[in-house]
């Protein structure tokens, strides 16, 4: 029985990783669509929203079934608790990808202002945090998430700087208001995505150690 449960738990983790990679892929592709003004890519990201939502429902259901059937304890219980959070965080990251892709569609016909400011750089850092959090979940290893607090501070600072820069451009030229407002929104969505990477990291830490931490 325990063997069957542990096989199921392993499968749950594998499927959750697939979902996490899809969320990450949607965000990366959305930012790429924004940078390259690639409307087609943006459309393809939006098209995957149903898929990731269906994954969320299926995987959550799987977690509840494992709890109901096996009443897991100790690390087994913590793996499921963490998995539920990873599922939610991955859905949110994917959804921010979808929203950014919608923005990319809307402004793909107009030239970038200031080369999208720090958005491409900020996106790279956020994606790295997401990658490291997923890797920590996959490998049961918390080394890669040890600097998350400082990395999250950098992300917050970048969002703030994009906000200030965008305001400056808007004051200079009212025609830039639409694009700059979207940049501010994109920066906010990226920052929230980094927060979700932090949530994954916090929960992987709990999964591994049984202790709660807060990444601020």
């Amino acid at each position: 029985m325990a063997e069957k449960f542990h096989t199921e738990l392993k499968n749950l983790k594998t499927e959750t990783l697939e979902m996490a990679h899809l969320g990450r892929f949607m965000l990366r592709s959305a930012v790429d669509a924004l940078i390259r003004q690639d409307k087609e890519l943006a459309v393809s990201v939006v098209a995957r929203k149903e898929e990731i939502r269906a994954m969320e429902i299926r995987l959550e259901e799987h977690c509840y079934q494992l709890i109901a059937l096996y009443q897991p304890m100790a690390k087994d219980m913590r793996v499921i608790a963490c998995t539920l959070k990873v599922i939610t965080a991955s859905l949110r990251i994917g959804r921010y990808g979808k929203v950014i892709a919608n923005i990319a569609k809307k402004i793909s016909d107009q030239p970038h202002i200031a080369n999208l400011m720090s958005i491409p750089h900020m996106a790279d850092l956020v994606i790295e945090m997401i990658d490291d959090s997923i890797k920590a979940y996959e490998s049961d290893n918390i080394e890669g998430i040890s600097e998350f607090s400082a990395r999250d501070d950098t992300i917050d600072a970048l969002r703030q700087s994009i906000f200030r820069e965008a305001i400056t451009y808007m004051m200079e030229d009212p025609k830039s208001i639409t694009r700059c407002t979207y940049y501010i929104l994109v920066a906010r969505y990226l920052e929230r995505s980094a927060d979700h990477a932090c949530i994954i990291a916090e929960n992987v830490y709990y999964m591994e150690t049984g202790e709660r931490i807060e990444i601020k």
């Binding site: 542990h6 304890m73 100790a74 690390k75 219980m77 913590r78 150690t209 049984g210």
Partner: peptide, 17 residues
């Protein structure tokens, strides 16, 4: 004990290993 046992033996027993 059931959320995060300190000993690996305990962990292995309560998780049915």
């Amino acid at each position: 004990i059931f959320e995060h046992p300190k000993e690996e033996l305990t962990e292995n027993y309560i998780t049915g290993r």
